[in-house]
């Protein structure tokens, strides 16, 4: 697999290139270079470990947007069985920046909803870079409402730069679509588990992010505005995005400390894209556990607990 490395991963990239080179030589040469390859592999692993042990917020946000990072449909394929995609908001269109449908998690019927980015250029455009229009949120709402009526737990997957800022989106009520999801999700009488798998971009992310249990993959991000957006407003320069990322505390570790999310799912060494199967396995196990726990609670208590959790968000003093 030809991994594309990020800038801060260059030392790893160099080692991997050397290993690759030796392998090519090895195949048409008598000399045994296995020992050397092994040595370099160990070194590469150690370097990766060292680099990944002290990533800053900006590096993590690059990982969250990594072009090879697994997307919602990748996880759906690996985690669930019997997935049937359901389309359309019944009002205007089918927005493919959000996908959803019925599926089974370890045999158990569930409803799945998530943002979907595209892999190649054509699909990126078709998926609108994972930026939903109101139709996307209304499709999500329709599926979540259906889930409630048929007693299916809702599992959402968050991975978006944000809701699409376009003329049509505004005309068709982007704000209202997001707002309505927030209100309805807060009272859904079924377990709701939200997983941030890549970029948790602002209101466009939260619109499928109100739940009983919110988990984040280790190198995903969740923020009120993109680091670039924040930097261009507060520092008057998008180039200061790294500082903005740090100041906002958009990483899973920071958000867990602040009690804004419930759980971090650790990623394989080097990030989810290095070993998508392992990542899916870990995420699945976290989802199965969470679902089992939440299923033990009756719907009214579940909704009450979700409400209390939402009400606790905020830092203030009482004079």
């Amino acid at each position: 697999m030809n991994l594309s490395f990020l800038e801060f991963e260059q030392p790893i990239a160099e080692l991997e290139a050397k290993i690759e080179e030796l392998r090519n030589i090895g195949s048409d040469n008598e000399i045994n270079i296995d020992a050397e390859i092994k040595r370099l592999e160990t070194k590469s692993k150690a370097v990766t470990k060292s680099i990944f042990s002290s990533l800053n917020a900006w590096q993590i946000s690059q990982l969250a947007r990594h072009p090879q990072r697994p997307y919602t449909l990748d996880y759906i394929e690996q985690i669930f069985t019997d997935f049937e995609e359901l389309h359309g908001d019944r009002r205007y269109a089918d927005d493919v920046a959000i996908v959803g449908g019925v599926a089974r998690l370890d045999g158990r019927p569930v409803m799945v909803v998530g943002h979907q980015k595209g892999r190649d250029t054509a699909e990126k455009v078709r998926r609108n870079f994972g930026m939903p229009r109101p139709e996307g949120y209304r499709k999500a709402l329709r599926l979540m409402d259906m889930a409630e009526r048929f007693g299916l737990p809702v599992l959402t997957f968050i991975d978006t730069p944000g809701a699409y800022p376009g003329v049509g989106a505004e005309e068709r009520g982007q704000s209202e679509a997001i707002a309505l999801n927030l209100r309805v999700m807060s009272t859904l009488k079924t377990p709701v588990i939200c997983s941030v798998i890549g970029e948790g971009g602002s209101g466009g992310a939260l619109a499928i992010g109100v739940g009983d249990w919110v988990l984040m993959l280790q190198y995903s991000t969740y923020s009120v505005i993109s680091p670039e957006g924040c930097a261009s407003i507060l520092w008057k320069s998008a180039g200061r995005a790294a500082e903005a990322a740090e100041a906002m505390g958009i990483t899973s570790t920071r958000l867990k400390q602040l009690n804004l999310i419930d759980q971090i799912v650790e990623e394989p060494l080097g990030g989810a894209h290095r070993d998508p199967a392992e990542m899916a396995k870990r995420l699945k196990s976290a989802l199965v556990d969470a679902l089992q726990r939440l299923s033990a609670t009756a719907a009214p208590q579940l909704v009450a607990a979700r409400y209390d959790k939402l009400m606790k968000f905020g830092n203030f003093k009482v004079a």
């Binding site: 997001i178 707002a179 927030l182 999700m185 807060s186 602002s202 209101g203 939260l206 992010g209 109100v210 969740y222 923020s223 009120v224 100041a247 906002m248 505390g249 958009i250 958000l255 602040l258 804004l260 939402l310 968000f313 905020g314 830092n315």
Partner: peptide, 9 residues
């Protein structure tokens, strides 16, 4: 930051 976003919910 994210605390503000959560006020929406």
């Amino acid at each position: 930051a994210l605390v503000s976003l959560m006020q929406m919910a």
